[in-house]
Design a protein around this nucleic acid. Structure first.
Length: 561
RNA sequence: GCGCCAGUAGCUCAGUUGGAUAGAGCAUGCGCCUUCUAAGCGCACGGUCGAGGGUUCGAAUCCUUCCUGGCGCGCCA
């Protein structure tokens, strides 16, 4: 719709230039906006305002000339000049009703586009260390990342989702020591408890399972507990497998799927880590100091240089991170989006700097990052501190069990990633109308309910007749719904382009509100068959868009509630 | 001290990339079920868009200086 209007305005401007009314060198970017107020028509343009200076004429006068020069079109019934010089476009009924036909024809495809042109994009998210269960923060990452994947796929990208599985390094040793301490009967209060050891109760669970000789079946590994409290390696393998299994179950319960789990340990096994170090040394960006090997990341915009190899010989996490991202690049991903918590934002410049230092022709701003701010959890009006090491914990599993998957996902994705989020457990658990997800789902269920009622009456919806009679939709509530439905594809495109799934969540709430208002004001199953079927077409279009939108958020669309 | 993110109604948050009179939910008050599911609808109340300066036809939005909160500033990840 916007494109058509843009075309008309372009033609009008070209005509004015031809008449010598406008200088030929003006190259305006024609902006067409949806109006906020329906008194201002359906679409509005500010071209006259932005061109007034170049034209040497008052905006309203210029606007009048543009309107005069607009070619006739069946889409626009009239134009109006308003305010300081806006041109308001009023669309014809038939053009605004056409969206219903499009939705019914395209079904689940409505709102999808091919702007991604089938290009590959990789989205990495969650990537939690296997040192504890997933908590709310990981949940936000999972909800946002998964929704992002769905949005990208819906806009024509070839999406690969990936979980970087950090199964090597110091934190894993810490995990092994913590479990071992529990195996030896120590408690976190004990003076011999490992420094910085993980104190959570789940460590005790792992230790008990290990000592009992349980067998763990995780996605990619199967380990049986050796039961020997002195065998640190066996404990490490067991603990990693155990927590991996827990995370598998958490993600499954959250309906989040990954195409690939990438193991950090594989970067050591393949020699990629070593090769990366050697390349960085060969490129002359490193130096030794205090027994450690440093990378001069300050040459690439970092505020201080970073250690790659510790004085005791091991690598910091930074190096495998660089090796990992080089691997992504070499797999051919021209576009990579890393979704992670903002507490890790310092890795952004670091990883990019490391990649630049490799001199492989990787673009400076590669990869993209979507950082979500912290989640604050409230329970009984008080903040619950999330600390793996201290053991006080709100797990994702708890939330899913208590709140339900749909509400949890909706809450975690309904805010812009860059805003801090307060997750009120009592509110989310309340199962009342405070939960906006129910409000949206209820709108979907209501449409289904109308269809059921129709069937009970021994009647059926004649979709053809409905589409033929769309011009009967003349109520203000109906016009508002039509306008809202027409916006959906733009919302999806914008949410995908800006990595902001919450736009979809907000849109669905507004759409549901428009629908509920209409539902209360006007009966759908009226005697007049033409009107009835037209209204059924509209309600079915609403149902379809809600289903499409909820799917992008990973939330179900129930047929009854 | 430096960097990143934020500051909008009593609370939780939107705000279509600089547009017209700043919106929604919750909370509060008053109405609406013999009619397709009341998990709903309508009306009312509620604002110095953190503060000051700047940019222009026009600023919650862009620039700048402060104030406040969160996160980061490891040879942890």
């Amino acid at each position: 719709m916007k494109e058509q209007i843009t075309l008309l305005v372009e033609q009008a401007l070209a005509a004015l230039v031809a008449q010598g009314q406008l200088p030929a060198d003006v190259a305006p970017k024609i902006q067409i906006d949806r109006t906020r107020d329906k008194n201002h028509g359906d679409l509005a343009s500010n071209v006259a305002l932005s061109l007034a200076k170049a034209a040497g004429r008052p905006p309203r006068e210029l606007a009048a000339q543009i309107c005069e020069a607009l070619p006739a079109s069946p889409v626009v019934t009239r134009t109006e000049i308003a305010g300081p010089g806006f041109i308001n476009f009023f669309l014809s009924d038939s053009s605004s009703q056409a969206v219903v036909r499009s939705i019914l024809q395209q079904g689940a495809g409505f709102g999808r586009s091919d702007v991604g042109k089938g290009q590959r994009v990789q989205v990495e998210f969650v990537s939690a260390n296997p040192t504890g269960p997933l908590h709310v923060g990981h949940g936000r990452g999972a909800a946002v990342g998964d929704s992002l994947c769905r949005l990208l796929a819906a806009t024509g990208w070839d999406v690969a989702s990936e979980f970087y599985y950090n199964d090597a390094g110091a934190q894993i040793d810490n995990l092994a020591r913590s479990v071992q301490a529990r195996c030896q009967g120590l408690t976190p209060d004990s003076p011999e408890w490992p420094e910085d050891g993980y104190r959570g109760d789940y460590i005790h669970d792992v230790a008990r399972a290990y000592l009992a000789g349980e067998t763990i079946d995780a996605q990619d590994r199967h380990v049986t507990g050796a039961g020997d409290a002195n065998n640190t390696d066996a404990i490490r393998d067991f603990a990693v497998a155990y927590l991996r299994r827990e995370q598998d179950l958490d993600l499954k319960a959250f309906a989040v799927h990954f195409d690939l789990y990438f193991l950090e340990s594989s970067l050591y096994q393949s020699g990629a880590v070593e090769e990366t170090v050697e390349q960085l040394i060969a490129n002359g960006h490193t130096y030794e100091q205090d027994g450690a090997l440093w990378l001069r990341t300050t040459e690439f915009g970092d505020d201080k240089d970073r250690v790659m190899r510790k004085s005791e010989g091991g690598y910091t996490y930074f190096l495998p991170d660089v090796a990992y991202h080089l691997n992504k690049w070499e797999r051919g991903f021209q576009r990579v989006i890393n979704e992670q918590g903002a507490d890790h934002h310092s890795t952004v410049t670091r990883v990019r700097a490391g990649l630049q230092a490799l001199q492989k022709g990787i673009p400076e701003g590669w990869p993209d990052y979507v950082l979500h701010q912290m989640v604050t959890v409230m329970r009984d009006g008080e903040e619950v501190k999330i600390s793996k090491r201290a053991g006080s914990y709100v797990t994702l599993r708890d939330l899913i069990d208590e709140v339900g998957r749909d509400a949890t996902r909706y809450f975690l994705v309904a805010r812009g990633p860059s805003s801090q989020l307060t997750f009120d457990i009592d509110l989310a658990m309340s199962q009342s109308n405070d939960n906006p997800v129910y409000y949206i789902q209820y709108a979907h269920a209501r449409v289904c309910s109308i269809q059921r009622k129709l069937a009970e009456q021994g009647e059926s919806w004649n979709a053809e007749r409905g589409i033929e009679n769309l011009e009967q939709l003349q109520e203000e509530h109906e016009k508002a719904l039509l306008r809202r439905l027409d916006r959906y594809p733009e919302v999806v495109a914008s949410a995908a382009a800006n990595s902001e799934p919450h736009l979809v969540a907000n849109y669905l709430k507004d759409l549901a509100a428009d629908f509920h208002a209409w539902y209360n004001a006007h009966k759908t199953l009226v005697d007049d068959k033409a009107l009835r079927d037209a209204r059924l077409a509209l309600s079915e279009a609403v149902r379809q868009v809600i289903a499409n939108g909820l799917d992008l958020l990973g939330v179900s669309a129930p047929e009854s509630m």
